[in-house]
Design a protein around this nucleic acid. Structure first.
Length: 162
DNA sequence: GCCAACGTTGGC
DNA sequence: GCCAACGTTGGC
């Protein structure tokens, strides 16, 4: 069930692991956002991220880090199968299949931002002073973004407002 | 590659 | 339930 009002998120990915270009090159330009193994992020994926929500695709551990493109949630939270796969790096032997511990969503690439927005610029923008990604020590890989922050980042990236 | 900041684990 | 040890994240 979709909410009446769309929410916005920032998803972090290390480009060497899975970049925005990788997402755009993927089948149907989609991917499962699996492998999240942090409870706070899990709670967001399970309870709050909904189909139709907007995603700022952020490259972490990049030179420089920053927001590279936009994506959209195309499937809300459901159990992440990699937790039950002993061969997978994110296998969790303590997770009960009848009560899965880890959840994921599916996202689909939208457009790349015409201009990459580096973390330095996010930090320098006073309108974004409260944005989570600019907070020191903030490591959450799935972060809520306000509507105002979303529009400001799109503006900085040269994307038409929408 | 370094390391500060966090989150998790497990002994007690 | 405390907290030291350990593992991970992610900017630099």
């Amino acid at each position: 069930m979709a909410r009446s009002k769309r929410r916005y998120w920032l998803f972090k990915s290390e480009p060497e692991a899975f970049s925005f270009d990788d997402l755009r090159a993927a089948k149907r330009r989609r991917t499962t956002w699996d492998g999240v193994r942090n409870y706070q992020a899990r709670n967001l994926l399970r309870d709050d991220v909904e189909r139709g929500d907007g995603v700022l695709y952020y490259h972490s551990r990049a030179n420089p880090p920053g927001v590279v493109g936009l994506a959209e949630v195309v499937k809300a939270g459901y159990p992440d199968p990699t937790q039950f796969d002993p061969q997978d790096a994110h296998h969790d032997p303590k997770s009960d299949p009848d009560d899965p511990r880890w959840f994921m969503v599916d996202i689909e690439a939208r457009r790349a931002l015409p201009s990459f927005v580096p973390l330095d610029e996010l930090k320098a923008n006073r309108k974004l002073a409260r944005m989570l990604v600019v907070q020191r020590g903030q490591r959450l890989s799935i972060q809520p973004v306000t509507e105002a922050e979303w529009h400001e980042v799109l503006r900085m990236g040269g994307a038409p407002a929408r």
